[in-house]
Design a protein around this nucleic acid. Sequence first.
DNA 1: TGGGCGTTCTTGGGATAGCATGGGACGGCA
DNA 2: TGCCGTCCCATGCTATCCCAAGAACGCCCA
Lengths: 165, 165
Amino acid sequence: MAVFLSTYVNKVDRKGRVSIPAQFRQSLAKTSAPSTVYLWPSLNHQALEGADQDYLDVLSESLESPDLDADERDMIETFIFGKLIPVSSDAEGRIVLPKELAEFAGITEEAAFIGRRKTFQVWEPEALKAHEAVLREQVVRKDISLSQIVAKASRGAAGRSGEGA
Amino acid sequence: MAVFLSTYVNKVDRKGRVSIPAQFRQSLAKTSAPSTVYLWPSLNHQALEGADQDYLDVLSESLESPDLDADERDMIETFIFGKLIPVSSDAEGRIVLPKELAEFAGITEEAAFIGRRKTFQVWEPEALKAHEAVLREQVVRKDISLSQIVAKASRGAAGRSGEGA
DNA sequence: TGGGCGTTCTTGGGATAGCATGGGACGGCA
DNA sequence: TGCCGTCCCATGCTATCCCAAGAACGCCCA
């Protein structure tokens, strides 16, 4: 599955087109549908989420789980698959940001692509800045540290099944 | 089987015709009866449900299962298969919305097609908006996040069958 | 260590094809 | 014979494809 890292800010032209960062494209190239990405409005932020075909297949499979309650499934069907837009890139590696999605995220002139491993987000750059400021404050307040997280996770994994990511 | 994604709002003309979104048509093209879709009133919403021949075949087969209790089967037989209307599209990819179905969903001038993977729904756009508002509130209240669902599902799958993503 | 060269990436604009939509004509059924 | 449904044709708009060039970057060579 494709892995998305780092942050890139690209321009959105008059037609609503924007280049997918070259690094992202290289990741996408290895997937089953290299020139197609899927975009949808984030459930939790005023931003867009993006992923490749393979990730969606996994998500789709998750929905088949009988453990998931009907309400939740309905929500996902409506808000993810109902909003999800397959976007194919042109020869130059650009995609057209669908109008309703650009509006949702407040994107007009520039779009910030931020890698989140298996998915990525697309933000209006200023909104992203603000969001990051809030998050950083939380990091400080909660005194979060990376080594602590890794330690905690490996302890948990050992307890459950020994499977780590 | 056809996969339906995204939301499209199309106009209903004076004759009750409405274009099936091109993306949906492309999905339908791969099925066993490309120019026919099946519509029926939703059990849970004031909206229409739609699917292709292949989906109905699967649904039909599910009804043969001895596990299904009689009441449930009876309901499905009555409300789905009893109400179901096969609709064929013209050369331009339009269908005529059956009057009773349009009335049921309150559709007059515009119809919103919303993809739900294996099926789709057809809503009166304002009604859909209202429905989404309710759902979104639930998302916020329950603090649902996508990554959480995927994580939960893959953990469940790992526990049940040892299959991980 | 500095400068020059080449490549890759991003960005821009015009042409083209596809799609949504509207109206009219023909044929069938009542 | 009148009405309704289906088919066919026409059109404006939108999105897609194609071609082109500027800029940044890294690499190589002196």
